[in-house]
Design a protein around this nucleic acid. Structure first.
Lengths: 204, 204, 204, 204
DNA sequence: AATGAATGAGACTTCATTCAT
DNA sequence: AATGAATGAAGTCTCATTCAT
């Protein structure tokens, strides 16, 4: 079996032109990944889609995996930004408001690029894509921290489990809503129901 | 691009020896898929692992996809069996009992072969593997039907949304428990919490 | 730096057809190597020259190096055979006869395929081609052993150095004669001179 | 196939800085060639090792071959210098002294940079590297000329063959000694033996 | 003069699939 | 039915070389 190829970036592009090239390549990676799926995506197709020679692609990305890793990085950075920003504002906010905010943010995160999100889910979980699970792990942690602050007013005793439950639920609802039932987001019913579900569970 | 290869089985093996060969091949598919992931799995490796020549493999399975399709079929048949059997027994049973039963079954389903389950999740969603989503869809339907029967005693009005919420939640909890926190299944805390969560949501 | 590729054969061909394929590939390797030199030789050119698909080539030879290694093996086996056979006959034979015999054999060895021999000399000395040096080492050993037997009647004291000197000389004379001055082999002058040179040096 | 690239230097660097650059590049060529061998040596690696941009490298050397050609030139110029200088002194000198001097010079030549010497031996013999054979040819000529002067006192009749024999022998002994048996050069035994061998052959 | 980004031919290699035996 | 040799499209990746800045 061949050794796992390098996955980290090969070169810090310093000039402006090359930074544009890198962006073009990552953009193209997203397009091809969404269109063809991970295993029908090839470095040649990506180079072609990026309007760049295959050589240039390999100047910056040493492997197919590296391409997807960079794309994931970028995508999840956007998502993370959404949450970290929100996390600041949540301190001291009443439970219902906080829960509703988190749900909205999660849905927004899924709406950034739902098709891409789905495509990334099917990337083999090796080396690079711990990232996918990392983001969810981070979500669970944030929820856990929030719950810990208010633990006196909450019913569940094991807040780690509770946080897992809630974070997973929100993730799944958002995912399903954006991909399968976008219309359920028109009115606020789905969100209301989810808030309701969570509050009933948490409140004494 | 070559035409999409056939995906359905090539011939119904009639004799006993043939059936053993087929089983050996599907078993080998599972082993290789779990070890290497879909896109590092090759038909030659599978044939080797099955102790069968590549020619014989193609006698029974017309393509790589067909191998995985057969494996999925088999795995999900086991899971489906678990549920359909349970579904019989659930009619007229009190809500709490039913919810608890479904959760247990879902966990059992994930325990059949968690690694395989995870590997199958990452198979590209083309042609063959709608199956994966099919099973979850089927779960949602069963829950929906169950809820419809008792709709008078339930609080949520939109039972389709409620069913989605609940089915998704159970799936996710089971998945996470089996793969990430097997110890949480030792005592019944996680199950209890989940039952609690669902009942608080459903009950008037 | 990438890991050194495999160099040993990939598969023992069992059927007759495949053995022919292997021979055809090694033959083609010789032709291409002689024509283009090691670094302009490519696996594709070899496959083409062998009238075989590139896939078949890789079924039996995992790398360019492996091709050349197999070719060397075959070439040097012929040479070795020549010598080992002669070595038998040399025991107890008078010095002059022995020296003359070894020279003739060495020349014959170079005449098997002088162009190939020269091409092989320029193959990078890594992994596989220790073989080249091995053959010469073996030659030195044979000479050394022969000299040891007659050490009483010989003038030089350090017979290891003497053997080195003689073996190297014979190798170089043969090489130069075959490649640069084939006409010097017509009459026996060159051989006579070389025998003379060696005997004067060895005799008391 | 692309047309054979230029092999001669692209411009005569006139300023001091330029000349330093050229030297740095040739030095780097030597280091990389010794480390990686000709076909794993790349122009980019050389530029990197020289601390120069690839563009600058091509300003002075039009091709990979040109790099190695320049290196060969420099290496063999050193060697040639050694001999031409000695050749002056040899006129009228007694045979034994001359032979011993030539052997010593040859060994010195091999000691300049034995690893480089070996690496250069394996450079493909095309276009540029007749040089390698040229140097040896030059050695044979020098020996031949020397022998012609003293032909009356020498036993062999065909002095061209004799010169070939002797020059080849010296080359091979020196090569082997430096690369395989450096310790044999500590005391003078090997040199003495070689001188002995040659004189016995030449003297009436 | 120098830089280093860009190019693309072509090298190496795999693997799903076919087919002669 | 089985075997496994053979195929070749397609993929990954390198590197000598050019060219815009």
């Amino acid at each position: 079996m061949p050794p796992r190829p390098r996955t980290t970036a090969r070169k810090r592009p310093s000039q402006k032109r090359s930074q544009e090239t890198v962006v073009a390549i990552v953009d193209a990676t997203a397009r091809v990944l969404k269109r063809d799926g991970y295993d029908h995506m090839s470095t040649n197709k990506v180079a072609l889609a990026a309007g760049v020679s295959i050589g240039s692609l390999y100047q910056y990305f040493p492997s197919k995996e590296a391409l997807v890793a960079a794309l994931m990085e970028r995508h999840f950075d956007e998502i993370r930004a959404l949450f970290e920003e929100e996390a600041q504002r949540l301190a001291g906010v009443p439970l219902e408001v906080a829960v509703r905010a988190i749900i909205k943010r999660t849905i927004e995160a899924h709406q950034i690029d739902p098709i891409l999100h789905q495509a990334l889910e099917q990337v083999p979980r090796i080396g690079l894509l711990q990232k996918f699970d990392d983001v969810q792990e981070r979500g669970r942690t944030l929820v856990h921290q929030y719950l810990l602050v208010s633990h006196e007013s909450l019913r569940p005793k094991d807040l780690e489990i509770a946080a897992d439950l809630i974070a997973s639920l929100i993730e799944m609802v958002s995912h399903g809503a954006v991909l399968r039932h976008p219309n359920r987001l028109k009115d606020g019913v789905l969100v209301d129901e989810t808030v309701d579900l969570i509050l009933r569970y948490l409140k004494k």
